[in-house]
């Protein structure tokens, strides 16, 4: 089942004197449960593409469909709801809210939705992420790896249609990198979570099912690994 379809997406930045084509005519689709890596050199347009997929940045032209619905036919408020419910975002620098503890950071999207927290799901996530003993800790009291786990938990809490991860291991050591990748793989394999991961690390990319390579804003390779 197709969960994501990108059609002829272009993104242009007009800085006055120059025009930068960050993305040119990108088209691809992703099936539910796929684990996709997007690779490319620095400045190739990977993060731009991820932001467009996540409803954060509007494309200059083209369409993005998530779960059969156009993302960018929504108003700003509707996009906020979309990001809350259908997208989970993980960043390189974690981007947790410093005043909220682990549990509160994870449940933030649910609370923004005004819904009741599924305590069972929360407990399961905390268990899976190895954060049970740290549930009341603030981000400042956690290591980098632990913070990234919290970020993953926040991204997964609402069981989003797609999970978007922008260099999630970029700020971590080798052991933590492995652990995070294991977590992502587990959520993909066990919970059929669709994951799109940006990385510049080819070894990490090879742990996914499919690799998309971007170069100078163009999709030059779409290869199924597994």
């Amino acid at each position: 089942m197709e969960i994501l379809r990108v059609e002829n997406v272009c993104k242009t930045y007009d800085t006055g004197e120059t025009t930068v084509n960050a993305l040119t005519d990108i088209s691809f689709s992703v099936q539910k449960g796929e684990f996709v890596a997007i690779i490319g050199a620095s400045g190739s347009g990977k993060s731009t593409l991820l932001h467009i997929l996540g409803g954060i940045d509007r494309p200059t032209s083209g369409e993005v469909f998530v779960d059969g619905q156009s993302v960018y036919e929504r108003t700003e408020d509707q996009l906020a709801v979309f990001r809350r419910r259908q997208v989970g975002l993980i960043y390189q620098f974690y981007n947790l809210i410093p005043v909220l503890n682990v549990e509160e950071n994870i449940t933030l999207p649910v609370k923004l939705d005004g819904r009741k927290i599924n305590k069972k799901r929360l407990a399961g996530l905390l268990q899976a992420l190895g954060l049970i003993k740290r549930r009341k800790h603030l981000p400042g009291q956690l290591s980098g790896g632990q913070q990234q786990r919290v970020a993953i938990g926040r991204a997964l809490m609402n069981a989003p249609a797609i999970l978007l991860a922008d260099e999630p291991t970029g700020n971590l050591d080798t052991q933590n990198t492995q652990e995070i990748m294991q977590l992502l793989e587990a959520s993909n394999k066990i919970y059929k979570q669709t994951i799109i991961l940006i990385t510049h690390d080819r070894e990490i990319a090879l742990q996914t099912d499919r690799i998309l390579e971007i170069q100078d804003g163009e999709l030059i390779r779409d290869e199924v690994i597994r």
Binding site: G54, E76, D77, V81, R83, I97, P109, L112
Partner: peptide, 16 residues
């Protein structure tokens, strides 16, 4: 500002 960006990115509306 960065914190606000994150809150927006996880679904907090501008009004919120």
């Amino acid at each position: 500002r960065s914190e606000f960006a994150v809150l927006r990115s996880v679904g907090m509306s501008a009004v919120g």
